[in-house]
């Protein structure tokens, strides 16, 4: 029970660490570049034209 309680209390740390690892992996694969390229052009679909 004690272990489970500590695990639940610290799970956010694991999730955050995993998040930063994913971010690094995504950046290395050029995915942030894809996001930037999409975000700096007017998204015609988003505004109901495309």
């Amino acid at each position: 029970m004690g272990f489970l309680k500590i695990y639940r209390q610290k799970a956010w740390l694991l999730g955050t660490a995993l998040g930063f690892a994913f971010l690094g992996l995504g950046a290395a694969r050029g995915q942030l570049e894809i996001v930037w390229k999409k975000a700096v052009m007017i998204c015609l679909e988003c505004i109901g034209i495309g």
């Binding site: 799970a11 999730g15 994913f22 690094g24 995915q31």
Partner: peptide, 13 residues
């Protein structure tokens, strides 16, 4: 989509 999942994991956690 690892990069975006990364943002979601950090904000969500």
């Amino acid at each position: 989509p690892f990069g975006v999942l990364g943002f979601l994991f950090v904000f969500g956690s």
